[in-house]
Design a binder for these strands. Structure first.
Lengths: 195, 195
DNA sequence: GAGTGATATGAACGCGCGTTCAGTTCAAGG
DNA sequence: CCTTGAACTGAACGCGCGTTCATATCACTC
């Protein structure tokens, strides 16, 4: 038997990515087999290869699309006014976006070493673009004399690490509401750069 | 043939752990085979089982010993005086210790999901103890009125994430010297909590 | 210098891996 | 209603995996 009733390529493709994302996030790329992904989708392993050339491309596509959506969302976010307000808005955006997509975030920065060199370079380029957006804010703040940081690159990396870390401990329905968490992180970020 | 001249258990044991640590850090636990580890040591795969009951225990032992050494080193570190000085000393210690052992650190927090439940619980207990040490400093600072943080637990996680992030970008011989990096991180940590 | 225990080999075990492919089923267009 | 092609199956491929074990070698003790 083959081709069960109701199957469609437009449905199976996204479902494969969703299942792969969930499994990669939970167990890690190397520990997840194509057969496990297929089982999660409700399909045989061979069928996956109608939608991805190989396992590596499946991972890369997840990471690439995540980072491109992140950059697009940042571009769509209003970052108005003086550097301090822009930094606060960036911090809130970053925390919110990452809390909304824990799986994507987790995969995108835990599985870097499982990318082949070419794919790694492409992903790093996107990550760098995002980091640069933050660094621009910091540079503007330093130039305006409202931030005091000895090194904007170091401060950029420190802030991103701090903000991204929220995904490691936050759990829905915990002690703190999302809005509180966003606000607290934003304030810590501002203070950290001396605003 | 077997037992080549000059072999000793006291040498092979540590060498296995060193090779495993290096390979796990570079490629990830799930992507490293026992045969690769054995090859790095210069031994056949079977010989590894004279030193570890299985692959899982090898990983756990690396993580456990790392965290216990971290806690011991923290306990041996003088954290004198008022909260602000203690926080600065903690931040410098954390950055220094992590920069000195990039492989241990990387393995200890990238491979958590590859621990079985029992081992995971043990490692989490140790991590928690370390986090608590920082939170105690923050609580003391809040009580003394010198730190302003809405939630000490959140601030603890944010600071540790920020400080640990140094391992993700710092490279020996880069733009900044180690001492500078330590100092900058310590100052950012202080400012972040409003000291 | 014989005997013993620690240290290692190398072959083997069953198993699951990523990937391929010939064949099968079904939805839709003319 | 027939044809066509997209969607999928199920079996197979060679390979490397973690682990075990009978066997071999060597360092050391008495």
């Amino acid at each position: 038997m083959a081709r069960r009733t109701g199957s469609h390529g437009e449905i199976t493709g996204p479902r494969i990515r969703a299942v792969a994302r969930a499994l990669f996030a939970r167990d890690g790329f190397a520990a997840v087999s194509m057969r496990q992904i297929a089982a999660g989708v409700g399909v045989q392993a061979g069928a996956l290869y109608l939608y991805t050339p190989d396992k590596q491309s499946l991972l890369f596509e997840l990471m690439r699309s995540h980072l491109e959506e992140l950059l697009a969302a940042l571009a769509a976010e209003p970052l108005p006014g003086p550097p301090a307000e822009r930094l606060a808005a960036f911090a809130r955006f970053h925390v919110r976006y990452h809390l909304d997509r824990p799986e994507e975030v987790f995969v995108a920065y835990m599985e870097l070493r499982n990318l082949n060199p070419e794919n790694f370079a492409a992903v790093e380029r996107l990550r760098h673009a995002y980091e640069d957006a933050l660094e621009e804010i910091l540079k503007a703040g330093v130039a305006a004399g409202v931030f005091r940081v000895p090194d904007t690159r170091l401060a950029t990396m420190a802030l991103i690490a701090m903000l991204t870390g929220v995904t490691q401990w936050y759990h829905e329905g915990g002690r703190l509401a999302r809005a509180e968490v966003e606000a607290i992180y934003a304030e810590m970020a501002l203070k950290a750069v001396g605003a």
